[in-house]
Design a protein around this nucleic acid. Structure first.
Lengths: 220, 220
DNA sequence: CAAATAGTGTCTCTGAGACAGTATGAG
DNA sequence: CTCATACTGTCTCAGAGACACTATTTG
């Protein structure tokens, strides 16, 4: 029985929640878009395998963002090559330089998740990606992980745009500001502020130390 | 690379959150307590393997309660026999007749989770069980799964005792009653009520159809 | 009757949503 | 100046916690 890791890698690009896809260079599903991933090495722990595949296939580092286990998928027919169980990981990353295709990928690209449905991803990757998106949506409610989509220092407006992109809703900027700045451990001010933008400069914040938001930020 | 399923099976017994353990009949860790589980068959999906192992090793059926995937564990050294990745499942069951030891188990028993720490379970099962308990605690907040610990028809007081056992807190019976009966889709009245108990008879309820509680029932 | 448990009503306080108003930058 | 965006304050309403009170049973 073979074991792989697959990665649902999400970021915000141009205000849209987007997923990292690679075009498969080899059979099966050659030429189809798929999630990055690959076989787990014999002496390697699962999170290490996920981080390694992310770098190998796309040149991206998870360090800047967040990487967590999503779920495992092991239907007997999910891979035509034989029995393959995959451990899916979910990565949330800030909008970084364009990914670089690695060894097993003909190319790598970001796709807005709203357009992925029409691609018909390889294997059961449509399902894995859908589960990853739902996990991300849920996690923004009760963790400060929205900041994983942002650069190290960010404004409250940037953070709000993350929530709006992930949830697909508009949020009131004033109420969001109050909520973000008063929920303990959500964000911490750096003292610095933006300049050269349109409108009043905004305070810059870093991600807070809380792992759970209390009270949570429930979806409208 | 071998793939197994392991089960964190929880119930409420005598007011205490309890886990189902088996005593290992074979090496490695022979004689130690462990979670029920076993190898995934070649033609078998993961949830089927979990349900099969539950029946084989303990005689319990997941039908009455709830069975969901928990997480996967694949540290290279976690099994002395070689590389074994395990997909852990979490089962929440009503308090059923005592489990019956199956093929691979010398015996099977319920242990209050507060006493499990001192047993030093086999493999990384302490960690898996701890993750399962934390998942159960979190899920009671925003799903109606507390009812998975109850018989098909139950009183609000029984449901409250589930929450108290899982969270390890006391809850106000009156506020809990209001919350349980007014949150849409949480419980539905059957029209029947208890009799022969001490005090005023209680209405019987069934589990509602909601999958998510809104607003959630946050831990105090 | 008392004791016990089920269930209702009511008050208060916190926090979310709506939205007016003020602050501070660019052009 | 105007315009745009950041931020603050205020009102109202929903829901959680505290807890008095009523209802219905057993002994």
């Amino acid at each position: 029985m073979h074991v792989t890791v697959d990665l649902a890698v999400l970021t915000i690009r141009d205000g849209a929640l987007s997923a990292l896809l690679i075009r498969r260079a080899a059979a099966p599903y050659r030429g189809r878009w798929a999630l990055p991933g690959g076989f787990v090495h014999d002496d390697e722990d699962l999170p290490d395998a996920a981080a390694r595949e992310l770098v190998e296939e796309t040149g991206l580092h998870g360090r800047a963002g967040h990487l967590e286990q999503l779920a495992s998928y092991g239907s007997p027919k999910r891979d035509p090559r034989g029995r393959v169980v995959t451990i899916a990981y979910l990565a949330l990353l800030p909008d970084l330089p364009a990914p670089i295709a690695g060894s097993d990928a003909a190319s790598a690209a970001w796709y807005a998740v709203s357009t992925v449905d029409s691609l018909r991803l390889a294997f059961d990757h449509d399902r894995i990606l859908a589960d990853g998106i739902e996990r991300a949506r849920a996690k923004l409610e009760y963790t400060p992980l929205g900041a994983a989509f942002c650069p190290p220092e960010f404004t409250i407006a940037q953070l709000r745009e993350v929530y709006e992109a992930v949830w697909g809703t508009k949020l009131d900027p004033r109420n969001f500001h109050r909520k973000a700045t008063t929920t303990p451990g959500f964000v911490v001010p750096t003292g610095r502020s933006t300049a050269g933008e349109r409108g009043r400069p905004a305070q810059l914040y870093r991600r807070g130390t809380a792992t759970l938001l209390y009270p949570p930020m429930l979806r409208p």
